[in-house]
Amino acid sequence: MKVALFGAGRIGKVHAASIKTDPRSTLVAVTDVVSEAAEALAQEYDIAARSPDEILGDPAIDAILIASSTNTHSDLIEAGVAAGKAIFCEKPIDLSLERAHGVLARAGSHDKPIMMGFNRRFDPNFAALKARFEAGAIGKGELLAITSFDPAPPPVDYIKVSGGLYRDMMIHDFDMAAFLFGMPQSVMAHGSCLVDAQIGAAGDIDTAVVTLSYSDGRLATIRNSRRAAFGYDQRVELLGSEGMLQAENVLENTVVEANARGVTSAKPMHFFLERYMRAYGIEWAAFVDACVEGAPVPAGIQDGVNALALAEAANISLAQGQPIEITSALTGG
């Protein structure tokens, strides 16, 4: 399968490595608005740096991987559909839920796989938790708790174009909640700025708790912070009628020191590239499975719309100070 990459930045480089690792896919071209970045990656992989129009118009290219800036995602998905390509796109579809609904409608009749990049679904620990849950290991799920803390906040210039914490950061956790528990009935959001006053001045929050309520009484909580002094904190806890499942942090090493002073272990891995590198490779293999083997797409456009709808509801809830019902008007379903 011949693949072209849109975006030669940090996440684009991660995906380039994943494409190379799978023997069923070959990276043949790259494009980026920063021509120097495209040329550097092209030289590293001995491929061509080409324009978007050249890539989309080349019938020899089977699939495109969209890892460019968020504001390009929806246009490139639609361009990929028009060009008859299989499409893998990093989250989110768009910062506008209305625009995402439009993409969902236009992509509905596409006969090639379209997959959204929610890499945490493919983390071996979270995937194992889901498998045990679905196998009935803890009975009926009742209470889900998702923790996601970054080691440090991003630059304020990034915050200003990110779409806000709920769309940029917590969207992964919204998808994880939907992945494990399905879509909730309502969303109640709380948020404040405790880490960096400049983030608040930019109109965003850096500390947040969201509660998802389900029609059958189940509850899920999501906790986000832009700062955790000890590293990248990524945990899931699921309480059921017959027990509990937990996916703990992945540590820098497995050494435990025990002495008279106490018992200590290593810190969590520093950030997402270290923590989720395996997940990115497994995620790409799942996309190739869909393209080559005809396997189901494990995270499609509707999943992207659902996560964005929960983020939209959280923003409305924060502004209004009340729970927001999740309706078809939000999900497009």
Score class of each variant (00 low, 15 high):
I199P: 03
W284A: 12
T211H: 07
F287R: 14
A247W: 03
L219Y: 00
Y280P: 07
G304S: 01
G203C: 03
V288R: 05
R223K: 15
G294D: 06
V250D: 12
V250T: 15
E248F: 15
Q246F: 15
F287L: 13
G231Q: 00
S213C: 06
A279E: 01
G304N: 01
A307M: 07
E293L: 14
R261Q: 15
I205P: 05
T221F: 12
L251N: 10
E248K: 15
G294F: 00
D233G: 01
G243D: 04
N224G: 12
A286L: 10
E293R: 14
E242N: 06
R218H: 06
E283P: 01
I222A: 12
M244A: 15
T254P: 09
I222V: 15
R235S: 06
A299L: 08
G231H: 02
Q246T: 12
S241Q: 05
A228Y: 07
V255T: 09
G203D: 02
R278Q: 07
I205F: 01
A286N: 08
F230I: 12
R218S: 02
Q234R: 12
T264R: 11
G231M: 04
V250F: 09
V263C: 14
I222K: 11
A258M: 11
A285T: 07
F272D: 02
Q198T: 01
Y280L: 04
E257V: 07
E248P: 09
S215N: 09
N259W: 04
D289V: 06
V210R: 01
F271P: 00
D289S: 12
P296Q: 02
S213T: 09
L273D: 08
F230T: 10
I301C: 12
D289R: 09
R261G: 15
Y232N: 05
M269F: 00
R227C: 09
A197K: 14
G281N: 06
V209P: 09
A229S: 06
A228V: 01
N253C: 09
A290L: 08
T254K: 14
A220I: 03
D204I: 00
G304L: 01
R218N: 02
R218W: 00
A286W: 06
D196M: 08
L245I: 06
G217N: 11
R223I: 09
R223E: 15
M244K: 15
D216P: 10
A202K: 12
I199K: 08
A202N: 11
G262A: 08
D303L: 05
V263F: 02
V250Q: 15
V209C: 14
D233P: 00
M269H: 00
G304I: 01
V292T: 09
V297T: 10
F271Y: 10
V255Q: 13
M244N: 09
V195M: 08
I301A: 03
F271W: 07
G281Y: 06
I282Q: 11
V288M: 10
L239F: 03
C291M: 15
V236P: 02
A266T: 11
E274M: 07
M277E: 13
P296E: 00
I205K: 02
R278P: 01
I205W: 00
G243S: 04
N306T: 02
K267P: 04
H270I: 05
V297I: 11
V209E: 14
E248V: 12
L212C: 07
Y276D: 07
G300N: 13
H270M: 08
A197V: 13
I222D: 13
R235L: 10
